[in-house]
Design a protein around this nucleic acid. Structure first.
Lengths: 145, 145
DNA sequence: AAAATTTGTTTGATATATCAAATAAATAAT
DNA sequence: ATTATTTATTTGATATATCAAACAAATTTT
């Protein structure tokens, strides 16, 4: 519990952790595919598992704002990772279809995702990981009250 | 250890945690001062404790890019929280002087910062907090290799 | 069915993140 | 002292975050 600087609390360690993690993720991803970001990748993976998911649900899953999702998808359409088609059942939505390029990218990058997780959590026991998760969830619920 | 979704790992919990924490921070700050962000606040507090700090050091402390710091400071100068003056000893740098408005803001918001931390960490024992910090630091060093 | 409300998405404005390149001053090497 | 290198900061380009407002389609209420 060092408190010398204003940044000397766990909460800043949390911030630091996620930033370092995102850095290696992006680095490892770009060794394989150069024009995609971590978040865009995650969109692909989520769509692959839940093809009919609404943007609003995707936003919740990714802890992002709806507006962010709209723009991320926009860029992915521009880069030909996704195609938009009108949803027949609900005209407010659009179907998000993963293109060939998108599919190939998922295949290429899925192992990288696993590697990233493994790298980050190396040396942590299952118990420690569970405890970490528990403590973080406690903080989350504290913040939500 | 739920793994149903692609976001079902501790690493996403970490991301979620910091986002929720930032949300209550911003919310509580804006109850008192309406035109300042969490990061801008942190700049004030850091400058208050280390008035002669270089931007590059500030960037490290805040886990941010130098460019981000430049722009955050720019906005703070515009909003009259800071003044820039050329540094006599090193002309590449500028002295960052906290204005009256800045000083007042620090006084107003310091208790909020403490409250935010207390709120977030409520119910966690010292041991748990230390363990959390230790585990996170392990992840950080894993990512840096 | 028409009006009111809710829901899913988009758009605008502003703040920040990130990388690379540009600057300019400070320091080291020759 | 001149050149070369390093250091601190800035700028440009692009991606994302966040809030509020706009919008249109879906749903509920009356």
């Amino acid at each position: 519990m060092q408190m010398k600087t204003p940044t000397g609390t766990v909460l800043y360690t949390i911030e630091q952790t996620i930033k370092e993690y995102r850095k290696i993720c992006q680095k490892n991803i770009q060794k394989i595919v150069s024009d995609i970001t971590v978040d865009q990748c995650l969109v692909l993976i989520i769509l692959n598992e839940k093809p009919k998911i609404a943007q609003i649900e995707m936003a919740k899953l990714m802890f992002k704002d709806n507006a962010s999702i709209t723009r991320i998808i926009e860029l992915m359409v521009k880069k030909n990772y996704l195609i938009r088609e009108p949803d027949e059942f609900d005209k407010r939505k659009s179907k998000l279809i993963v293109t060939e390029k998108g599919e190939k990218t998922i295949v290429l990058l899925s192992p990288i995702f696993k590697l990233n997780r493994k790298t980050a959590l190396d040396g942590l026991s299952m118990d420690e990981i569970e405890l970490l998760d528990k403590l973080l969830n406690k903080i989350i619920s504290n913040c939500k009250i």
